[in-house]
Computed example of a mutant assay.
Amino acid sequence: MFDKVMISAVVIGLSTSMAFAGGPIAPVLDAEPAAAPVVASAPAWTGGYIGGNVNFGKGKLKAAGDLADLLSEIGEDNGVSLGRTQAKPDGVSGALRAGYDWQMGKGVLGLGAEYNIGTYKSGLDGIFGEALEFEGGDAEVRIKNTATIFARAGYLFNDNLLAYGLVGYTRAKGEVSATIDGFSESGSDTLKGTTFGVGAEYKVNANWSAYAEYAYTDFGDISGTDGNFEAELSQVKLGANYRF
């Protein structure tokens, strides 16, 4: 009985002391620092770029319309094929390129422009080349000052590899010069046509990418020839872009 009274007195005494002292001390907890706001970054392929490429181009100057029909008729009458291609200007050249891309998920859309600083050239082929050679003359056909504006759309197979197709509008200068018996003649025309292409681009790092591309341009009928000649151009390109 005495023990119970003593224990009760001790408990009451401790409770009273704690009450006068301000009660039990609450534990102090360290507040966690506020999280920094997350700023959304632009997708990796969104932005502008400048670059260039080395390319191999091969053009064709072809007979068309009434001239193509005439050559076919002459060939049939003589049991030979005269063909339509009268020249194949080709060569290795370089081009400058710039553009801007927008990434949307796995898709990439872009606009760009390219200027070819070189010239594709060759002599005359076919019946006209043979006739000129028979007369002791020669000729040269050139495609130069090729400029293209284009739009492209692509799909990202992974963060670094983009496969794309493009469509654009191309202008170029076509020239023909011939010499026979010491006399020279030349002429030129502006070639205009639609360009289609496919390619793949790979991001080497945040700023640099490399690409391979094939492009075909149909210039259609050459003005001033009454629809008797038409031209086209195919190009294979290997290039690099600096992206910013």
Rank of each mutant, 00 (worst) to 15 (best):
A206E: 15
K60Y: 06
G107S: 10
N145C: 01
V10W: 03
G59I: 07
K4D: 15
P43G: 04
V5P: 00
G168L: 09
A31V: 10
I12K: 11
A178T: 13
G137Y: 05
R243P: 03
G123N: 07
P24H: 08
G22M: 05
S72R: 11
N228S: 12
W45N: 05
L111T: 02
N55M: 10
T217V: 12
V10L: 14
K58T: 12
F20Y: 10
I143Q: 09
Y100Q: 04
I180D: 05
F56M: 09
I74V: 15
L67R: 10
D159S: 05
K192G: 12
T146Y: 00
V38E: 12
S188W: 02
G187I: 05
F229A: 14
E185I: 13
Y100N: 02
G174H: 04
K58S: 15
G224N: 11
V38S: 10
D181V: 03
D90N: 15
A63V: 03
T119H: 07
T148E: 08
P27S: 09
E140Q: 13
Y155Q: 01
P43W: 06
D66R: 13
S8T: 12
T179S: 14
D226A: 12
I149F: 10
M18V: 12
S72C: 00
I50Y: 08
Y169A: 12
S41G: 06
G22A: 09
W45T: 02
V10K: 14
G65L: 08
F128V: 03
Y155M: 06
L71W: 03
G168Q: 06
L70Q: 13
I143V: 14
G187R: 07
E114G: 01
G187W: 04
N205K: 09
G59D: 09
K106G: 02
T146N: 15
N205P: 09
F128G: 09
L162S: 04
L82P: 05
S177A: 14
A19E: 11
P33R: 11
T146P: 00
R171T: 14
A151P: 01
T225G: 06
V39L: 11
D138F: 13
A42T: 11
K60N: 13
A98Q: 02
V141S: 04
K60R: 14
L96P: 01
A212T: 12
S188L: 02
D77C: 00
Q86G: 14
G126D: 06
L71A: 07
E130P: 00
T46C: 08
T16F: 06
L233F: 05
Y49E: 05
A113F: 12
F20Q: 10
K62S: 15
G168M: 09
A26T: 11
T179K: 08
K88D: 14
I12Y: 02
I7Y: 09
W208C: 03
Q235K: 12
L96F: 15
